[in-house]
Every structure is written in structure tokens, then in C-alpha cells.
């Protein structure tokens, strides 16, 4: 009896296996397996400006400006380098966004000497501007923003600290723009508005939007020698009304 049961179980198992194998063969012959890739829409930074080094200088006797993109060879630069590129990619086709920039702290060196960053005199030491004049970024320029090739949807992004100037080694380029002074006050630094791309949910964008970013730093007179560093944070937020 036990042998009959065992044989029956084995035969059933073989039959089941053959059935599965047969079904697989049939499927292989009649239907190819597929891979379906579903990408959701997104809002993200595509590029932020590279780390910035203002270089070296001697202790100044007077308040002295240094620039991220100073003309050093006597030739007027008309484009910011690609390393200064700030690009937001929005493929949501639904709603808007906002970009701000803030300094996380004052410039500080290894001896805890500081270069203060405030948005009021006399410590209004660091200013930012944006410009659509950027190398290797192509597309339609509208109000200081480059809507890169293949962009579709709404324009209307406000470049809040845009400059039309082309001399990024001139103090006037930076001082003629309003609300572009970094403030690292504690406990909460005051951000500078870069992009205001607010839209309602009934509207949207698909593509990349870019600007170049240039900076100027005032070194106060008789600043102690040292390597001064700080960190700036770029913040991208959904701004859909």
C-alpha cells in the first residue's frame, strides 16, 4: 500500500513538473518576456556651481574686493565658465519651484579669525549675481534664465539677482543688484532668492533651466592671515500654488 502511494505521489509530481515545463515552452514560443521601465517625473538640481576659491592675496590696507571670475589677462570675459552653472531640472509638468542660497557660517580660518557675512554695512562682504551668459549652455534666454534645448512648458522663472552686466570683475556689477548680500547670522542664516519659479498645479515645465553664478567677496582691511572657508547651501523647493 505504501509503495502504491509513493509511486502515485512521484507520478503526480512528474506530471506537475512536465506541465510546468510544457507551459514554459509554450510561453517561450508565443510571448517574449518584457521589461517595463516606468520613470516618475522629478524636480532636482541638475548642476550647482563648483566649489569656489577666491585665490590668495596679501593682507589689504583697505577694504578690497576679490571676484570669482576676475579678468586677469586684460581680456574682457563675456561668458561665465561652465563650472559656474546652476541648473534645475523639472520634468513634472505640474507646478513650480524656488531656489535659494545661504551661507552656513561666516568665513573662518584655522585660528578662528573671521570675515563676517551680514546683509548690512559694514559687514556686507559677500555678494552674488546670476547671468545667462554661461559657456556651453544653449537654449532660449528669457529674463535672465536659459531654458535649455528641448525645454517645454511655461517660462516665467524670475532670476531674482540677475545682472545684465558682462564684467564679472567689477564691483559695480555686484553692488548695482539688490538683495544679493549673503547673511550668515545665527541661528538662522538669511537666504538669498535665486529663482522664483512659482506656478499653479494647472501649469508646469519639462526641461532644464540654467544660469551662471558669480560672486564677489570684500576682504576687510588688516584681516589676519589664514585660509578662510565657509559653506554655501543651495536649496530647491517645490513652489506650487
Amino acid at each position: 500500500m505504501w509503495v502504491i502511494k509513493k509511486t502515485f505521489i512521484i507520478l503526480c509530481a512528474i506530471a506537475f513538473a512536465l506541465n510546468l515545463l510544457w507551459a514554459g515552452i509554450v510561453l517561450c514560443e508565443t510571448e517574449e518576456s518584457s521589461v517595463n521601465v516606468i520613470r516618475l517625473s522629478s524636480l532636482s538640481f541638475y548642476a550647482i556651481p563648483a566649489n569656489l576659491d577666491f585665490g590668495s592675496l596679501r593682507i589689504p590696507f583697505q577694504k578690497t574686493a576679490v571676484f570669482s571670475d576676475q579678468d586677469v589677462d586684460g581680456t574682457q570675459e563675456t561668458l561665465l565658465p561652465e563650472a559656474r552653472r546652476l541648473t534645475v531640472q523639472d520634468t513634472r509638468e505640474n507646478g513650480g519651484f524656488r531656489v535659494t542660497l545661504s551661507a552656513n557660517s561666516d568665513f573662518t580660518d584655522e585660528n578662528n579669525d573671521t570675515i563676517l557675512l551680514r546683509n548690512t554695512a559694514p559687514d556686507d562682504n559677500m555678494r552674488i549675481v546670476t547671468s545667462p551668459l554661461v559657456q556651453n549652455v544653449t537654449g532660449a534666454t528669457d529674463s535672465g534664465v536659459i531654458y535649455e534645448t528641448d525645454f517645454t512648458g511655461e517660462h516665467g522663472v524670475n532670476a531674482e539677482i540677475n545682472t545684465d552686466a558682462t564684467d564679472f570683475g567689477s564691483q559695480d556689477t555686484f553692488t548695482s543688484v539688490s538683495d544679493n548680500v549673503l547673511d550668515a547670522s545665527t541661528p538662522i542664516p538669511v537666504p538669498v532668492d535665486i529663482f522664483d519659479g512659482t506656478l499653479s498645479s494647472s501649469l508646469g515645465r519639462s526641461g532644464r533651466m540654467s544660469v551662471g553664478v558669480a560672486a564677489m567677496l570684500y576682504i576687510p582691511p588688516f584681516t589676519a592671515p589664514g585660509v578662510y572657508t565657509t559653506t554655501m547651501t543651495w536649496t530647491l523647493t517645490d513652489e506650487t500654488t
Binding site: 550647482i48 566649489n51 596679501r58 547651501t233 536649496t235
Partner: peptide
């Protein structure tokens, strides 16, 4: 492949200047 629609997205950029005596 899920894209990200973040409420807030941040990136840091280092800045430096060297002052010599």
C-alpha cells in the same frame, strides 16, 4: 525607476579664500 519629487533638495558648495601675511 522612481524619480524624486522632494519637498526640499539641498546641495552644498565650499568657498575659500587665502590671505597671506
Amino acid at each position: 525607476i522612481c524619480g524624486t519629487v522632494l519637498a526640499q533638495n539641498t546641495k552644498d558648495q565650499a568657498v575659500s579664500v587665502n590671505i597671506n601675511g
